[in-house]
Write a protein that binds this DNA or RNA. Structure first.
Lengths: 226, 226
DNA sequence: AAATGTTGAGAGGTCTGACCATTTGAGATT
DNA sequence: AATCTCAAATGGTCAGACCTCTCAACATTT
C-alpha cells in the first residue's frame, strides 16, 4: 500500500476507499480479519484521520467492514445483506411503492419455484408444514400475532431457500418481510391458499404453485385467467 | 428535525444516519432536491461537522445521497450505481458470489418475461432490435467495446422494463450490469442467442425465450434438458 | 444590449490536535 | 489459582482553521 496520489475529479476520501479495497484484496484478508488501526492507516496513506474515517464509514455502510469500538475494523463476514437492506430503502424511496415491492416479491418467489421444479429439487415439505401450522395458529393477544407473521415469512423464505442461493435467499427474505404486512389478503384466505400451495409443491406442479402464490401475494390486478 | 439524543449501543454517526433518513422521509424530499448545508445540519443536530460528514458519506455510499463539491448534498436520482459497485466488490470477496448474482439476474429476467407474456404485454421489439444491432457491432479499439456492452445491457433492461415496475427495473439493471461482464459466454454466441430470444419474444413464447436467456446468462450447470 | 470577465458568498473538502469511551490483556493482589 | 487493577491500544467525538469548487450578481468590454 502506498500513499494516496491526488487524481482529478475524485475526492480524497473516495480514493482512500479505493485504496482500502485494494489493500483488502492484496492482503487477501479473510472475513473476520482485522485492518490496521485508523491512526496507522492514515499515516501510511498520508491522509488525515478524519478522511480515513469517512472512507471506513463508507465501507462499513457498504457492508464490507465491521467496525467495533475499542477493537478495530474487521472484514465483514456477510457482506451482501447490508447491501440488500439499502436496496429496499432505495426501492421504498422511489415512488412506485408497496405495490411494486409486492410484485417483485411475487416474481422472485415464483421464479424460485419454477427453477426448483425444473431442477427437480426436493422442497422441504415437512418444514413447510410446520411453518404453515404455526402461521395458522389463532392469533392470541400479546405478541403471538407477530409470531404467526414470522412463521408465515419463514414459510416463504424456506421455499426460496431451496435453491441454495444464499444471496437470492436474503434478497427474497427482504421483499417477503416487506410485502407480507401489506398483502391485502385476509389471513384465513392466505391459510387456505397455503394449503393449495403446499399440495402443488408436493407434486412439483409449478403452475399450480404459482397460481396459489399469486393469491397469497395479492397479485391479481390485470390478470388473464380470472 | 431535532437534536440527536444519545442512545445506547449506537454510535453517534449511525444515529445521525437514521435522523437524516427520517428527515428525507418527513420532508418528502424528491430526487434532486437539496439537503441543508453541513454546517447547518450539524448545528441543528448538535453534533460535530466531522460526525455529520461521516453520516453523509454513509448515505452517499449507500446511493441515497449525491454530494457535489461547492453545491451541496442532493437526494440521489438513480440510487443504484453506487450499489452496483459495492455489490460487485462484495461478490468478488465471497467466492460463490458471482455465480449467485448471475443466477439472480437470470431468475429476475426470466420472471419478467413470463409475467409479461402472461399479461399479454407487448415487448418493445423495435427498440430491442436496435439494441441488439448496436451490441453486435464489431468491437473496434477505443471505447466502442464498452458501447457494445452498454447496448447489450440496455437490451435486457428494456425487456424487464416492459412490466412497468420501476423498482423491479432498477433492481434488474443492477444485476444485469453486474452479471454481463462475467457471463462466461462468448460474444458471438450471445449474439446468436439474442436472435433466438428476440424471435421468441415476437411470438410471445416464454418457454423459448427463457431457454435462450439461460444460454445468454450462462445458466446451465445442473440443467435438465441438456 | 450582448458577451465576457470579476468577484464574493456559500458549500463541500481536508487537516490538526486534542480529549473521551471501550476493549483487552498484562501484571499486581488476594 | 482466582480476582482485581490499570494502562495501552483503538475507535468515537469535538472544535476550529483553511482550501477548493460552484454559482450568481455585478462590472467590464465589445
Amino acid at each position: 500500500m502506498k500513499p494516496i496520489e491526488k487524481a482529478e475529479r475524485y475526492t480524497l476520501s473516495k480514493l482512500v476507499v479505493q485504496n482500502l479495497k485494494q489493500y483488502i484484496i492484496e492482503h487477501k484478508l479473510a472475513p473476520g480479519e482485522r485492518l490496521p488501526a485508523e491512526r496507522e492507516l492514515s499515516q501510511i496513506m498520508k491522509v488525515s484521520r478524519a478522511i480515513l474515517r469517512e472512507a471506513l464509514r463508507s465501507l462499513e455502510s457498504a457492508g464490507i467492514l465491521d467496525i467495533r469500538h475499542g477493537e478495530g475494523a474487521f472484514l465483514s463476514a456477510n457482506s451482501l445483506s447490508p447491501l440488500l437492506e439499502q436496496l429496499s430503502f432505495a426501492a421504498s424511496l422511489s415512488g412506485g411503492g408497496r405495490q411494486e415491492l409486492r410484485e417483485i416479491r411475487y416474481l422472485l418467489e415464483a421464479a424460485a419455484i419454477e427453477e426448483g421444479v425444473r431442477r427437480g429439487s426436493a422442497f422441504p415439505i415437512e418444514e413447510l408444514e410446520r411453518w404453515h401450522a404455526a402461521a395458522a395458529q389463532p392469533q392470541q393477544a400479546d405478541e403471538s400475532g407477530s409470531q404467526a407473521a414470522e412463521a408465515e415469512a419463514q414459510f416463504h423464505i424456506a421455499i426460496v431457500g431451496t435453491l441454495g442461493n444464499e444471496s437470492l435467499g436474503k434478497l427474497a427474505e427482504l421483499f417477503i418481510r416487506q410485502a407480507l404486512p401489506h398483502s391485502g389478503v385476509k389471513a384465513d384466505e392466505r391459510a387456505k391458499q397455503r394449503v393449495r400451495y403446499l399440495q402443488a409443491l408436493r407434486s412439483s406442479d409449478s403452475t399450480a404453485a404459482k397460481l396459489a402464490l399469486r393469491e397469497l401475494a395479492g397479485q391479481s390486478p390485470e390478470a388473464i385467467g380470472r
